[in-house]
Nucleic acid binder design. Structure first.
Length: 106
DNA sequence: TACATGACTATCC
DNA sequence: GGGATAGCCATGT
């Protein structure tokens, strides 16, 4: 079932524009919490696969981290590159450029 | 209510 | 640089 926390996480994900990525830590900070692990769980359980761009979420340092989808990280990597994000060796190139900062957004 | 688990992060060796 | 350990909060059993 969708808890209030999970909804908040998914809402945060939907704010990520195409071609941008964010981190679990950034989302946690945006939700005023440090539960980055809970955030990861929420993202992984999102029932709105195409609606919620879960593939735009990476872990600290711009590494892809995990991905519960077809092909796993491979698919995630391909989706990101298709949006203009360069991924190399499971890592985001020019992470700072593609990073979506919630504190700077609006 | 209590315990175990997890799409994580930071620190230590 | 890579592996192990601890801390963290929400969720599920």
């Amino acid at each position: 079932m969708a808890t209030s926390f999970q909804k908040a996480v998914w809402e945060a994900l939907k704010r990520i524009p195409r071609g941008k990525v964010t981190t679990y830590g950034a989302i946690a900070a945006h939700l005023n919490t440090k539960a980055v692990r809970a955030v990861g769980s929420a993202v992984g359980q999102n029932p709105y696969a195409p609606e919620v761009p879960c593939h735009r979420v990476v872990n600290a340092g711009g590494r892809l981290g995990n991905y519960s989808g077809e092909g796993g990280k491979s698919t995630k990597k391909r989706l990101l590159e298709r949006e203009g994000v360069v991924v190399k060796n499971d890592r985001i190139m020019d992470f700072g450029t593609h990073f979506f900062d919630y504190t700077k957004e609006r």
